[in-house]
Design a protein around this nucleic acid. Structure first.
Lengths: 351, 351
DNA sequence: TTGAAAGCGTTACCAT
DNA sequence: ATGGTAACGCTTTCAA
């Protein structure tokens, strides 16, 4: 193993000088620097991570900014679990992880979190790294981006991109998901040439893109109609009743339905109420407990998954490596579009 | 951060004694030991990985035992790549990785590798860890198991289990793969109620199980016939001709074909030669370059993948962690059964 | 601009 | 059976 000592000897300088060159902390004569760099190159030196971390003894603070784990059907617990797995695996004792939970349906809650994290007006230090699911309005995203840029904090966005920035992203391409849903609708439908995509809850760029891609795919492969049922607000009952009304309007030509976010349950209920004789396949999103149950019972027919646990794992791992080992971060890490059927769902459970 | 120093002080002993307790190297009075253990517990001490690795300065040798990367359509390059990624990510400088490639169609080649690795008759040290794809005869597996047991080497089997041992396994459950193939056949078939599974090349327990599960699944959901085309030996032309003959015998009732290992190409050719008017879907296995090409061109219809890259990554990571950090290994890490269609194949490419 | 030396937490060895 | 201490490779501080 090549150490700083070897380089120092080879370049005819001291350890201190080598270190200064390694970390560009100036105060070193040009020709000395050249000699050192040459030695580093020739001996192909790689720093010893353990010695480095042991020595500087620095503790990195990573802040996780994520919606409440119970919200969205428990979806966020998945990436959160992945993050914990990553931190546990790295088992570094110089990593301190803090978590702030926000309510993604209340912008103020998100902004409050930001203020507290970045300690507006205070003097406590900002975190060294940030893991954030920027599932908020474009406006709030802008505030976040500003804060990050100001303090120059190493950050990773997971689940959704941080709009208008080049901050590393770990998640799925929503358009691919929509297309795959279209293909599954085609495969599974048993008569009926029109399809519908359903989105419940407030507007979300990610879901919008999924729905659009679904629509475009269907237009490519079929001449059937495409209906877009986006219901913004309401109680579960209102949602269901509205779905019944709208689906009934579509009528007998309905071939399949794509649910762009969780709560496929309501959709299954609505279809049951309408009572079409022919089976209308439902394609849902995300392998949550409830969806898994529906799939197992045959009340929905397929689920598209975006590997949320892996998203969290990869995001956390990448950030921690960056902080502790100084490695570069990827601009984006895309998750595959996974097709879950009753036959392979068990193989996903352990994840 | 709690250090050994803190424990030593708390227990009123020296560092040396604490270390002896931590590593059970005896020579410590029962009551002293008790005091130390109590201190460890009370202060909830966790060793500093960096200091540990830096200190003992030990280099762990990991041996990778894998079929030639070019064989089996380049399949083995995938897990191999995953292993390299794992080692690179861990970027530990106290890990030395060696690789032995064997010819899985020549048992002697495997046994020779074993002899050289375990240095039969020599005095060079055996490796500290072993990553092996035991895709050989049960007999050779037994030899391997014996060698591992003899020297008590930390080992992980990937792709296939090491028969008759409880050595940690990273891979896919072959039965689940077979069932999913059955479901896809059902979904994609366009008339025809019988199906066939095709296996080319020598007998392999893993593939056999896949084919059996496929057969059983089809029997559950359909009354159509199931044909099992296992061709043991031959050139590509012989395989193809034989396939043509056998498939023609099945005739017009053929609904879909499942190819349990790669080389779906020959199958596509055979079906083209027969020239059935109706489209006969082909379900292939493993997202190799050739299979991907076939899928893209629409010459096969679906591929089931077992995440070979991840298999390698997880296997290597688990073993390295075990050696360097002393963590426990999981008894088995199962890969999900992934369904790849033209619509989502791009999302798998980056892997 | 450069060098020397202390210290990070752990292990291993030698002396008691 | 126990304590003391050097060493691992690197960073940081202080002096020159």
């Amino acid at each position: 193993m090549i150490t700083v000592k070897d380089i120092a000897r080879r370049a005819g300088v001291s350890l201190g000088t080598v270190d200064r060159v390694l970390h560009n902390r100036g105060k070193v004569a040009p020709d000395t620097e050249a000699r050192v760099r040459e030695a580093i190159h020739e001996l192909s030196y790689t720093p010893n991570v353990h010695a480095r971390n042991l020595s500087h003894g620095r503790v990195f603070v990573i802040e996780v900014l994520i919606p409440h784990l119970q919200s969205d059907g428990g979806y966020w617990a998945e990436p959160y679990r992945g993050m914990q797995r990553a931190f546990a695996r790295l088992n570094m004792n110089n990593l301190e992880v803090r978590t702030s939970f926000f309510n993604r349906y209340n912008e103020q809650s998100f902004v409050d979190c930001l203020d507290s994290i970045f300690n507006v007006g205070g003097d406590a230090p900002a975190p060294d790294g940030l893991l954030v699911a920027p599932v908020v309005s474009v406006e709030s995203q802008r505030v976040l981006a500003e804060r990050i840029a100001q303090r120059n904090i190493a950050s990773v966005a997971f689940d959704s991109r941080l709009h208008g920035t080049d901050i590393p992203f770990v998640g799925q391409d929503p358009r691919q998901g929509g297309r795959v849903a279209g293909r599954l609708a085609k495969l599974m439908r048993d008569g009926g040439s029109s399809v519908a995509s359903v989105t419940l809850g407030r507007v979300d760029l990610h879901l919008l893109e999924r729905a659009n891609a679904f629509r475009e795919y269907w237009a490519e492969i079929s001449s059937g109609d495409i209906y877009d049922l986006s219901l913004l607000d309401g109680s579960e009952e209102e949602y269901r009743d509205e779905l019944v009304t709208r689906l009934q309007e579509i009528g007998a030509d309905l071939g399949a339905v794509f649910m762009t976010n969780a709560s496929a349950d309501l959709l299954a209920q609505a279809l049951a109420i309408i009572g079409i004789r022919r089976h209308i396949p439902i394609i849902g999103y995300d392998l949550l407990a409830q969806n898994a149950q529906l799939l197992r019972e045959g009340r929905i027919d397929a689920i598209i998954s975006q590997r949320p646990e892996t998203q969290g794992y990869e995001a956390a791992h990448m950030l921690a490596r960056h902080l502790a080992f100084g490695t570069d971060m990827d601009a984006e890490v895309l998750m595959p579009v996974e097709i879950v059927l009753p036959e392979n769902m068990d193989s996903f459970q352990s994840e």
